[in-house]
């Protein structure tokens, strides 16, 4: 019994030991940039994957020419004319010197607009990255993906139907 407990503790320790120090998160690797002029602020929008595809997650960076110190702002994501997201510009968790979105996916293909509202020492200003083309998603159609992923649900329903029929007469 003692050996079993020691073995289990050893295995748990090994698992936890592997998990904590060996974590290696991908650095932010910008492969494409676009320029946005928001009043007095020159903004560089960086993409870790190019071209952008629907549902494919990537790192976006938003870097003012003179840094983000003393500046705040909001980012509004618009697909066509539909507002999809509206949030404050936050530092990228793995590239803290710029704003960004980490492992973020645009859900739908089409023409997107990123609207920036920035407030800083030179006053408030707005700017837009227009006509960002997001291509169709890779992989199987979503209907097929959902069909594969809900097999356990249909299995469970089948089990319930069998159990229902077998217990119907004695309830």
């Amino acid at each position: 019994m003692r050996k079993t407990i020691l073995g289990l503790l050893g295995a748990a320790g090994l698992l936890l030991g592997l998990a904590s120090p060996a974590l290696a998160f991908e650095p932010v690797n910008v492969v494409h940039t676009e320029k946005v002029q928001a009043g007095p602020y020159d903004l560089t929008v960086g993409f870790s994957t190019w071209p952008v595809r629907a549902m494919q997650s990537l790192d976006f960076t938003f870097a003012p020419a003179d840094g983000i110190t003393s500046k705040t702002g909001t980012l509004t994501l618009v697909r066509g004319t539909k507002l999809v997201d509206d949030s404050p510009l936050a530092r990228h968790p793995r590239k803290r010197e710029v704003w960004g979105l980490d492992v973020f996916a645009l859900p739908e293909p089409g023409t997107w607009t990123f609207k920036f509202a920035i407030d800083g020492p030179a006053g408030p200003a707005t700017g837009e990255l227009k006509d960002l083309q997001v291509m169709d998603q890779l992989g199987p159609p979503m209907g097929l993906s959902w069909a594969i992923s809900t097999i356990p649900l249909f299995g469970l329903i089948a089990l319930i139907v069998i159990a229902w029929r077998r217990t119907r007469t004695v309830v």
């Binding site: 994957t49 492992v103 996916a105 992923s149 809900t150 649900l153």
Partner: peptide, 18 residues
């Protein structure tokens, strides 16, 4: 295929949860 997004309700995640 799609990257390490943090989408809880992707089809495979729902398969795992089920």
């Amino acid at each position: 295929l799609y990257g390490f997004d943090a989408v809880i309700d992707s089809p495979p995640h729902i398969g795992l949860l089920l």
